[in-house]
Amino acid sequence: MFDGLKIYGSGDYLEGVTDRDALFICAVATTETSKIPGITGAGASPELTEYTPAADVELIVHDAPRCLPEIPQTIVEGEAAPTPAVITKVALELAEVPFLVADAGASVKPDVPYININSESGGDIRTGRAVSDPERIYERGLMVGRTLSCLTEHLVVGESTPAGTTTALGVLTALGYDADFRVSASMPHNPHDLKREVVMAGLSNAGIEKGDCRREPFRAVEAVGDPMIPAVAGICMGSTVPVTLAGGTQMTAVCALMKAIDPEFDFSDTAIATTIFVAEDSTSDINRIADQIGDIDIYAVDPDFGAASHRGLHEYLSGSVKEGVGAGGAMLLALLHGVPVEMVRERIEELCNTILA
């Protein structure tokens, strides 16, 4: 149907969102979990991960970050891969889709106007006390979803949450899903053993066994989740228009939470859009996780970074970054609005050559 798009599922969801007015919102959040050495590459160092979400959305709005001197980058063996915010920025500008920010719990607040869903960041999930009052966060997300869906025909929700795949693993495990060795990572080496060790420590300290939270979904988030998960679940469940969840395996945890809140939830108006780097990642399996939850279409966009001249973009091909800031969903929007993936890639290169000169 579209060059550069791979479809996992029926593909029926696309019929309801093609050529429709759209609105993109990015939920930003941080946790103390991201400061665990080796758990994420979403920042030049563990200490800088708390600045990454703010810097990402500042780049999209202001053309440069304001809380950091340079854009966030994932650095592996000396090579730097630029933040996926460059993908999101270019794709949304080409598609002429408006961009909003929601604070779901970021420790560093971005220097942009934003919707305040939750102002308190998440803790270290090893403590078993990760998120304060996740049900309230969810309820505020519901209100945002109801409001925004009155303004558009298609709502696309992205996220920027360092270490979000680890907290996703925590929630999925607490809800009883088989997600071990299936969540993605922002680095070529996926630290599955470390993630599992961190999650199991949190579950133990919370007095939770795998699957204990099937009927107490907010307890799962409270113990081993992050504040983005209930915020985005609320936005999605509050919406009256189709919602594309723009992200990787973190969004399967959002879907799992929604299913636990409402076992009859119908995913026909909900889909996940990601990048080909997540969908074809040999160290994870987004489709296997989603299949356990429900009939969820997954769309993966390939920006063809192999044809890019910018060396940093080649790091995506080596397993760095993969997804974030709704990059896959933003590229899907570009395709839905008639923008070819080649144009998206070329503009991304131009932007990288400008801001990384």
Rank of each mutant, 00 (worst) to 15 (best):
H337Q: 03
V341Q: 12
M143T: 08
A22N: 01
T270H: 01
S121N: 12
V278Y: 13
Q292V: 10
A308H: 05
L257F: 09
V171E: 00
D295L: 03
Y299C: 01
L94N: 04
P113K: 15
Y114W: 09
G202C: 09
Y13W: 13
Q73F: 00
L68C: 02
F218I: 10
A91C: 03
L48A: 10
A253F: 05
D297H: 04
I355H: 14
D285E: 09
N116D: 13
C26K: 02
E197K: 13
A246N: 13
F277A: 04
L333I: 02
K195R: 15
D12M: 14
E79V: 12
H154V: 00
Y13S: 05
V341E: 02
R215Q: 04
P110W: 04
I272G: 07
C150L: 09
H62T: 01
A279S: 11
T354P: 00
G43L: 00
I208V: 11
V339A: 08
L142D: 09
A273V: 08
A357W: 05
R288T: 07
T240D: 14
D133Q: 14
T270A: 03
S284A: 13
A44Q: 10
C352H: 04
D226E: 13
L351H: 04
R126S: 00
R146A: 10
I276Y: 09
H314Q: 06
L155K: 07
G128E: 03
G158H: 10
R347D: 13
S204T: 10
R20W: 11
T173V: 06
G9V: 08
S239E: 11
T283M: 04
E349P: 13
G123D: 12
A91K: 05
G248F: 11
A163F: 04
G207I: 09
T127P: 04
D281M: 05
F2W: 06
S119A: 08
I298N: 03
L317E: 15
L68H: 06
L335A: 05
T147A: 14
E209L: 11
E15S: 04
R136M: 07
A91P: 06
F24K: 07
V224G: 11
I293A: 01
M331V: 07
V61Q: 02
L335G: 05
S284H: 10
V28R: 06
F2H: 02
F267A: 10
L142A: 14
K259R: 14
S268H: 15
K322D: 07
L142V: 12
D291M: 03
A22G: 06
M143V: 12
